[in-house]
């Protein structure tokens, strides 16, 4: 096993499991649908709230996608092979998260313009929303991978993982929706986006190390 062959295999396996990707996407659409139904379908409510709604749905569907990311590897013994491969587990985690991110975020970006229309989000703000998702979701994935690694060996790990990880998502959601709101009010939003990018970079640097420690602890 080497890093290249691993990434290729991981990517291929994600492509083969199209249904999982589709499920994450459907979940995203479902959560968004709940807001007009549950709160208020009028444009007066939806247009200003659209950024927040989109981001809550994003955070939840990322969590759903990330939660089981090591489950199969744990069950079929692949994680054991990671540990004895002589490769850096940290780097393997990084590659895996990268593949996961691509497979979830790219389809998300494609459906986003349609959903934005349904939420009466002004077209001028759509760019900022997409940018905020591009810059912010890496943090969600990387932080989430720690929780996934910690709970992979537990039988009822999913709820625990939500409890552990969701509080850590708060800054990303705050700054992302802040940027969107600023854009809606035609104010400067680059600061918030820069902070988002910074959070993602920090998460990218630290999370794989933490996830690798967690994987080592989980596999025994």
């Amino acid at each position: 096993m080497n890093y290249r062959s691993y990434f290729k295999a991981e990517w291929l396996s994600l492509l083969r499991r199209k249904q999982d990707t589709l499920n994450a996407l459907l979940f995203f659409v479902m959560v968004i649908t709940l807001f007009p139904l549950g709160v208020d379908p009028s444009a007066d409510f939806l247009a200003p709230a659209a950024g927040g709604i989109i981001w809550c749905a994003t955070a939840l569907s990322v969590l759903m996608a990330v939660e089981g990311m090591y489950k199969e590897d744990y069950n079929d013994g692949s994680l054991e092979q990671w540990l004895v491969s002589g490769l850096s587990v940290t780097l393997l985690v990084f590659l895996k998260v990268l593949a996961q991110w691509l497979i979830v975020v790219v389809p998300l970006m494609i459906v986003l313009p349609i959903l934005a229309q349904m939420l009466f989000l002004p077209m001028s703000v759509l760019g900022v929303v997409m940018l905020s998702i591009l810059l912010g979701t890496p943090a969600l994935f990387f932080i989430g991978s720690i929780g996934a690694a910690l709970t992979v060996s537990l039988r009822r790990g999913a709820v625990l993982m939500l409890l552990l990880i969701l509080p850590l998502y708060i800054p990303v959601i705050v700054f992302a929706t802040g940027a969107i709101r600023a854009a809606q009010l035609e104010m400067a939003y680059s600061g918030q986006l820069a902070i988002l990018a910074a959070i993602s970079l920090v998460a990218l640097a630290l999370s794989p190390v933490m996830a690798a420690i967690s994987i080592r602890a989980s596999v025994n």
Binding site: L12, R17, N75, D76, E80
Partner: peptide
């Protein structure tokens, strides 16, 4: 070294050949 454990680390979504190729690129 080469280690083979109780669970062999074989992925269900891959064919036999692809599985082998992952480990022996």
């Amino acid at each position: 070294q080469l280690y083979l454990g109780h669970t062999p680390g074989i992925k269900n979504v891959f064919t036999a050949l692809e599985n082998l190729k992952l480990y022996c690129p």
